[in-house]
Amino acid sequence: MDFLNIPLPAILAQLVVGLINGSFYALLSLGLAIIFGLLNIINFAHGAQYMLGAFVAWFGVQYLGVNYWAALILVPLTVGAFGMLLERTLLSRLYREDHLYGLLLTFGLALIIEGVFVQLYGVSGKPYATPESLRGALNLGFMFLPKYRAWVIVASLVVCLGSWLIIERTKLGAYLRAGTENSQLLQAFGVNVPLMITLTYGFGVALAAFAGVLAAPIFQVSPKMGSDLIIVVFAVVVIGGMGSILGSIVTGLGLGLVEGLTKVIWPQASGTVIFVIMAIVLLIRPAGLFGKEK
């Protein structure tokens, strides 16, 4: 358990691995934060939508001959459209009700989607091959980093930063932020807020599906892959501050690093360390590290 007994290369390697996991946390919590920010809905179906992303990618290869690179674009669009359908038909009925109803609805949806996939495909999951061009490993001196994992870091950083720029630096993003503050006022200015809400939900879901495609070659494509991850991602969002865009990205990556270090220092605790941090953060800053007190 002694920190100093661990050689530096090992620590560096664990940090890199932590950064990879952090990339997934960041992508998923970003989607959750965007959805919560505008819709005020705690999207419990996020894990199921991530799983859907991986499965749709698998369907693509299996039945339609869609390769990985095409899947990276097409799958988020497909699953995002499915998300918009859910928003239009179900979620939109709940905006006037308490948060709790949205939470229960999305939680129920997650259970149904997962159950259907377990029934159809079993729990062991399906293999998804790593794309040809990303096989093999890079020698970083202190570790062999599989090329695919390096790609995951790059892809998720680009998407996270891109989303952040759109929200913070464009007119569309300005509408979105305005809607988060006061949607009625925004509607009074002639902006079609219901449409914007639908598109936003679709975008959040598409981010989850994108993460799902990224994860497919690393983990088994399995119905349970989302529920295993989603609880941690919720903790990330709470630590970052509900609805804070930058907060979710930074905490996602940061907690990936913390978790990575825990896995060398005290592996048994790696499953709980994020929740311990969450408890401490909530005690000291109830709104989260980047959240604003309301």
Binding site: P7, P9, A10, A13, Q14, V17, G18, I20, N21, M143, R149, I218, F219, M225, D228, L229, G260, K263, V264, P267, Q268, S270, G271, T272
Partner: peptide
Amino acid sequence: AVKHPFPATDFSSFILQAQS
């Protein structure tokens, strides 16, 4: 030995320890 949480999703960290 590494005792990993049950269930665990990402094993890369534990595999690195086993390698080293």
